[in-house]
Write a protein that binds this DNA or RNA. Sequence first.
DNA 1: CAGCATCCAGCTTGATACTG
DNA 2: CAGTATCAAGCTGGATGCTG
Lengths: 129, 129
Amino acid sequence: MDGIPEQELPYDVFAKACPSRGTLEHVTGRWGALTLGALHEGSLRFNALRRRVDGVSEKMLSQTLHALERDGLVHREAQPTNPPRVDYELTPFGHEVAERLLGLIHLVEGRMDDVLAARTRYDETRGGR
Amino acid sequence: MDGIPEQELPYDVFAKACPSRGTLEHVTGRWGALTLGALHEGSLRFNALRRRVDGVSEKMLSQTLHALERDGLVHREAQPTNPPRVDYELTPFGHEVAERLLGLIHLVEGRMDDVLAARTRYDETRGGR
DNA sequence: CAGCATCCAGCTTGATACTG
DNA sequence: CAGTATCAAGCTGGATGCTG
């Protein structure tokens, strides 16, 4: 009967305690997703990244990069020069993740007119209250 | 020279003020992603959904569903019976989004061993402090 | 069952200031 | 340039109680 063990995955985001949930949050979080998206086009230095991800604070970017580096999605390349120069780039796994993320992002961007229309409809329907 | 206008998208998540950023957050948010993932397999009633998305509170699920419904990703089907029965299901657009999301989720789940190993390495490297 | 209203602890976030 | 440290404020989210 368990001749064909049904290839059960050891990790399941739907389970509260699964560590994959944490990683998913790093990846999809407000700044995580945009950071990965930005780095998918090529490596960037700290402040360039900060400019690209419009609205992120120094602190949040730093924090986001640490989490992504820790999870093995981003590689940090520091050159001991003066002034310091640090480049951030995606690891192969980071690129895989970023690709899917960008697919999602573009899908959403491309349908924003529909989304906005849906919102208007929704708000009008229950607009009175 | 703008014979071939380069198909510029009107929406850009990287821009702070773009409404697409809000929608992306609804979609990728902690509960948004899991809710869409759960509903991709089929419609579910409120409490079934609550059980499926392990750890979500009533309030957060309700809030998440409202946001997704407003953005046109989820359809709410209420039957005026007693006791009340409400089914939630994805719209076609919701399914498209959920598909990509699940791709991302499975990618992450499938690589968790690598992620965990990367974390250990990271923590050991700067483990001292 | 399917939810809304309220309260409030605490985590997240953004400013600001400082270091190497 | 590339960050870290600190602090206040605001939003997130859970618990509880109630409605239809």
